[in-house]
Structures are given as C-alpha cells and as structure tokens.
Amino acid sequence: MYSFSYQKAKTVADAAKVLAKDGDAKLLAGGQSLIAAMKLRLAHPSAVIDLGTIKELSGIKGDSKAVAIGAMTRHAEVASSAAVKKAIPALASLAGGIGDRMVRNMGTIGGSLANNDPAADYPAAVLALGATIVTNKRKIAADEFFKGMYETALQKGEIITSVSFPVPKRAAYMKFKNPASRYAIVGVFVADSGSGVRVAVTGAAPSVFRVAAMEKALAAKFAPESVANIAVPEKGLNSDLHAKADYRAHLVTVMAKRAVEAAMK
C-alpha cells in the first residue's frame, strides 16, 4: 500500500467538502474493494475519507410500501434485518450471499453501488426492484444510475446516503458463483411488482442490465417456462477463463428460470 492521509468524516457535508477539494481522495465505506486494491498498489488515493462514524448513514427503515437502507448499512445487517426479511426476503437473502462472513460484516450497500463492480450482487436488486438511490444532492432512479463497468451516474462530490426499495409482490435472486472468487458469474434478480415484472442481470456483462423479452413474457405469465426459451445474445457479454460468453448467456436463462421458480414459492 502506498502512503495516504486518513480522515474520519463527521458528517456527509464534511466528506463532500474534502472530496470537492481533493480529486484524488476516495471515500471509504466498507473497504472491501478499496482496501484490497490499495494493498495491491492498484489504487493510490491521496486521502481516504472514512464514512464509518457518520451515524445517519446507517440503518434500515421500512413499511409495507418501501424499505430504505442507509448507505453505510453492512450486508450482514441487511441479511438479518427483520424488516427486510418481511418486506423483501429476496433482498435479505441476496445480502446474506455476498462474499463471505467477513465481507458481509464490513461491506456496505452504498459502497457496493458506488463501486458498481460488474460482478456485484446489489446492482441486480436495485435495478430489478426499481429502487431509488438517494444522494447528498438528489434522487436517482435505478434505471439512470448504472452507466457501465465501475461507472455510475454519481458526480464529483456526490455521496450516496440511502437506497429506497419499493416492496414487490414477489421476487427472488439466483446467483451462479465464480468457483474461485465467489462473485456472481451470473446473477439474476426477478421482481414482480404487481403492476409489472423486471429482470436484472449482474455478472454477465460489463454492467447490470435488464432483459426486456423476459420481462414481457413474465408479465404475460409469471412462470419458469415463460423464460425457459428466452436467450440473451452472447454479444457484449463478459468472457474469461471461468465463463465464456456463450456459457454466461446460457446461465442467464437457467438462473432466470430458477429465480422465477423461487419467487413463486
């Protein structure tokens, strides 16, 4: 790790001020990607601004319509939250399947979304559930947020404060893990809001994406067989040692089918 300065932000405004001044500063949420990149000397921030002690960024509020999760809420808290389990069990189960126990105890929803790793789990939930990302400056709809590999709509000095998830009628997430890293090779989140179905895929492409054909078929009939023969095109999908594009495309269909099955249970 290269040397860097470390500061604890007392408030979101405080953190935003430092960010605005120092273009090479980085926010530290759970540190599960940033610290690893720094240790490998792949990231070299001039300053690390720790959001860990800002109380108002943490916590879960929910009712029958929506669940709001503070940006600094750890995956383990989401996984074990009674409110999330009741309102959106698929989201609790997704959080409980991120990384390993240590990652879940440190990693945060805000950090994961701001990083937008192509193989992260949360983007699939945010996009499929049509969540709203709340920042210190504005509210961003999920469809507007994810811009590409490690790219989001966040502007300079903009900090995620919370994420609001509308409660769906039914939903489920199915992930096919990379055997080594256990990141998603393909993760499919299916959500039936009652007025429509959204299918979001993570891991398969440089950034999370929706599958319109599946959404249409499931809106007509919410059943596994509706998606069983819908294939996403291989073109544009990730291709590596673990999974070439054709295999990923195939897994999208299998995981979508299994997610629908699980959502119906």
Binding site: P179, A180, L241
Partner: peptide, 9 residues
C-alpha cells in the same frame, strides 16, 4: 492469469 484467489480456486 490465475495469480490470486479471485481466479485460482
């Protein structure tokens, strides 16, 4: 290519 536990299982 398999130089870390991200890729070496």
């Amino acid at each position: 290519v398999t130089g870390s536990y991200l890729d070496y299982c």
